[in-house]
Simulated assay, not measured.
Amino acid sequence: MRTIIIGIMIGISFISCNNKVKEIDLKLEKLTPGTTFKLDTININDWDYLYIVRPYETIDSGKYNMPESVLNKINNTARYDDGSCTLLFIKNNQLINYSIVQRNIIDFILLEPDTKYTFPFSQEYKLDIKRVVTIP
């Protein structure tokens, strides 16, 4: 019985360690201006949609079921760094990973989605000559 309990505890620990939210570097500076791209080919993790946190926007603690430390980092970046946007990759209404991107590298701020700042997994984007992202 003790062996079974220990095995279950180890399994739970392993699963919870693998489900940690991570900040990722998407290497978006390598994209060529004037081309189209999809984020599902750049961030190959399993996610459903993208939510963009714009400068001066904050999100509440209940949104996307994320650790408090990650929420604080995202909100502080949005409050104090108007030179960046944060891309949140969401699966089943839970944050999977995120990327803080500098707007001089790639600027997502002008996108106007049907639903406030959310974009589906398969969305195609265009990077213009000024490195501003639009929907083609």
Rank of each mutant, 00 (worst) to 15 (best):
residue 3 T to H: 14
residue 5 I to Q: 11
residue 5 I to C: 13
residue 5 I to E: 14
residue 5 I to K: 13
residue 7 G to Y: 06
residue 9 M to C: 14
residue 9 M to D: 11
residue 9 M to T: 10
residue 9 M to Y: 05
residue 9 M to P: 05
residue 14 F to S: 09
residue 15 I to D: 07
residue 16 S to E: 11
residue 16 S to M: 12
residue 17 C to W: 12
residue 21 V to Q: 13
residue 22 K to V: 15
residue 26 L to Y: 03
residue 26 L to V: 07
residue 29 E to V: 01
residue 29 E to I: 06
residue 30 K to W: 05
residue 32 T to S: 12
residue 33 P to K: 03
residue 33 P to F: 00
residue 37 F to G: 08
residue 38 K to N: 13
residue 40 D to R: 11
residue 40 D to N: 10
residue 41 T to W: 06
residue 41 T to N: 13
residue 45 N to T: 08
residue 46 D to T: 10
residue 46 D to H: 12
residue 47 W to C: 03
residue 48 D to T: 07
residue 48 D to W: 12
residue 48 D to N: 14
residue 49 Y to W: 00
residue 50 L to D: 09
residue 50 L to T: 04
residue 51 Y to Q: 00
residue 52 I to V: 15
residue 53 V to N: 11
residue 56 Y to R: 14
residue 60 D to L: 10
residue 61 S to N: 13
residue 61 S to K: 13
residue 62 G to V: 06
residue 62 G to E: 04
residue 62 G to N: 15
residue 63 K to I: 04
residue 65 N to T: 04
residue 67 P to A: 08
residue 68 E to D: 05
residue 68 E to T: 04
residue 69 S to K: 09
residue 70 V to P: 04
residue 70 V to Y: 05
residue 72 N to L: 04
residue 73 K to I: 06
residue 74 I to A: 01
residue 80 Y to P: 00
residue 81 D to R: 15
residue 84 S to E: 03
residue 84 S to Y: 03
residue 89 F to Y: 15
residue 89 F to C: 07
residue 94 Q to H: 14
residue 94 Q to L: 03
residue 96 I to P: 02
residue 98 Y to R: 09
residue 98 Y to P: 11
residue 105 I to D: 08
residue 105 I to F: 01
residue 106 I to T: 12
residue 108 F to A: 13
residue 108 F to P: 08
residue 109 I to A: 14
residue 109 I to T: 12
residue 110 L to N: 12
residue 110 L to E: 10
residue 112 E to A: 04
residue 113 P to G: 15
residue 113 P to Y: 03
residue 114 D to N: 09
residue 116 K to H: 06
residue 117 Y to N: 13
residue 117 Y to G: 06
residue 120 P to F: 02
residue 121 F to T: 07
residue 121 F to P: 02
residue 123 Q to T: 04
residue 123 Q to P: 00
residue 126 K to M: 12
residue 127 L to D: 06
residue 128 D to M: 00
residue 130 K to N: 14
residue 130 K to C: 03
residue 131 R to F: 00
residue 131 R to G: 08
residue 131 R to H: 09
residue 135 I to V: 01
residue 136 P to H: 07
